[in-house]
Amino acid sequence: MPRRRVFNPLTELLAAALLVVLVLVVNTWQFSLAVLVVVVVPGVLLSGKPRQIALAIAVAAGPLLISSFLLHGLFFPEGTTVLAEWGPARVTAEGLQFAALTGLRLAVFTGVLLTAALTVSIPELVSTLTHRGWNRRLVFVVGSAVGLLPHVAERARQITRAQQARGLVVGGSLPSRVRGLLMVSVPLVTGLLIDAAERTQLLESRGFSSPGPRTSYLPDTDTAGQRTARWLMAAGVLGFGCAWYAVGAGR
């Protein structure tokens, strides 16, 4: 079930980014954990597609968390309180603490940004950027790249199947793997380049490079209130950050 959208995508992305900045400014494991429990978990549950987002977060942050604990838990030369020792590997309290701090921050970083990004509707974001008068070249590159991604993956799959039907064997020795990679990537890139050439002509014939304002066919979902809110949020985080460092320096 898709979530009913309340805010404009720009507002949501900015809020997520500012939250990450706040976590980095405060930089204690208590605050990171609080954000994780109070913001990220409810956010994922209320997003309308909790399973997909949870999976994405696990795939992005999971391996990093595990390897962070293995790395700093076992090898932390700066640590002094040794808890256990096997040959060159030493488990130190400082190492584990360091791993916990970094790990929590990482979890918040991925959790907040992924939840925001995966619930954002890209067409709405692109139309908002057009309405706000952002550089249309940037808007084109971003929108087009996001649209092209599934297409590239699908096309690579089709080419692999076609080459396998002609007798391509995936895997085996290194030379044969390299040959397999080339047999898939050359037709893939060539096809994409030919598409790009055609798209260039289509865009040019529709006045892509001519100056002047652009019309978006999607209505503007941004409001004056949200624009003000965005400025206020950014100013608030900036003010908080300055105050935090001023207090920290005074101590």
Binding site: N135, S144, L148, L192, A197, F208
Partner: peptide
């Protein structure tokens, strides 16, 4: 961005997707 030709611009999403 403002200095790029349309053919370079169209190439960029392709590179990004790859």
């Amino acid at each position: 961005l403002p200095s790029l030709s349309t053919s370079s611009l169209v190439l960029m999403p392709l590179g990004i997707a790859l």
